[in-house]
């Protein structure tokens, strides 16, 4: 009886410890962001009137808005280009076995190298092509990260039960294109959506490439945050508010992505 109880409790205790290790800094950050500058450094924490003044201030600040807009446009641009390309690539891998296993591994291998090895040649290339400190350059750089990853993810979708469903459509009289557009695409929509969200998050969070390849006009949020200073120096309360804003999209998108990722993987399967 006691043993059973312990057995059931233990995982929860372990999980509680780990989740608080992850959650505590975020909650602390939230506290600091919602308090005023005077209370920000107080330990033990002082719970003054929570307010959104810090958030209002950072959005009024041009540099933060700049980072935010940069991140948003680069992440959206990356996703809009990488997703169709990755879908085409994955479909070609899955249906026609394009390039065989070697090409598939080659695509994945770019993900196995430490990013810092890729970023230096990219820097010199971008320097020659005048792509440094441009949004186009940043989008290209982020596509090099997203594309292989998305293609790899989508191959698994295209190789699932959808193969047989597509064949059923072909026998039903559909051409390859009709089967793709009227059967495969609608069924794959949740999977594509999940992949798109993933691509957005990857680009949104990316730091190293952005640090090296972007410049004052194109700094993204992660780079901006790392050097965030107001005219009064580092302000921990403002910085916390900015960080909360930076992770908010991820917090909103992740549960959505999880739902669609599972739906994408299981759709078409026999229940």
């Amino acid at each position: 009886m006691h043993k059973g109880l312990l057995k059931r409790l233990l995982p929860h205790v372990v999980l509680l410890v780990f989740s608080s290790a992850i959650l505590f800094p975020i909650l602390w950050m939230l506290r600091v962001a919602l308090t005023n500058k005077m209370n920000a450094y107080q330990i033990p924490p002082v719970w003054g009137n929570p307010n959104f003044n810090n958030f209002i201030e950072i959005f009024a600040d041009n540099s933060f808005m700049g980072y935010f807009v940069n991140s948003l446009s680069i992440a959206i641009g990356t996703t809009l280009i990488a997703l169709p390309l990755a879908a085409a690539m994955a479909y070609s891998f899955a249906r026609y076995n394009t390039g065989g296993l070697p090409l598939r591994l080659a695509v994945l291998s770019s993900q196995m190298l430490p990013p810092v090895i890729l970023v230096l040649p990219l820097f010199s290339l971008f320097l020659k092509a005048s792509l440094l400190n441009t949004q186009t350059g940043m989008i290209i750089a982020h596509i090099t990260i997203s594309l292989p990853f998305l293609a790899w993810l989508l191959v698994a979708f295209f190789e699932g039960d959808i193969v047989i469903i597509e064949q059923a459509a072909r026998i039903d009289g559909a051409t390859r294109l009709q089967a793709f557009l009227r059967i495969t695409m609608p069924i794959m929509a949740p999977g594509l959506l999940a992949a798109g969200l993933l691509s957005f998050i990857l680009s949104w969070n990316e730091f190293l490439f952005a640090l090296i390849l972007s410049g004052p006009q194109t700094n993204t949020l992660p780079v901006g945050l790392s050097s965030y200073q107001s005219h009064r120096g580092v302000d921990i309360a403002l910085l916390s508010a900015a960080a909360i804003c930076a992770i908010l999209p991820v917090f909103i998108l992740l549960p959505l992505m999880k739902k669609h990722l599972i739906k994408g993987l299981s759709l078409g399967a026999i229940k």
């Binding site: 047989i164 469903i165 064949q167 059923a168 459509a169 072909r170 026998i171 009289g173 059967i183 069924i187």
Partner: peptide
């Protein structure tokens, strides 16, 4: 296959979900 005018019933049915 679209032109052969055959119909197939698959083991896992392969209905359009």
């Amino acid at each position: 296959p679209a032109e052969r005018d055959l119909a197939i019933v698959f083991q896992n049915y392969a209905l359009y979900p």
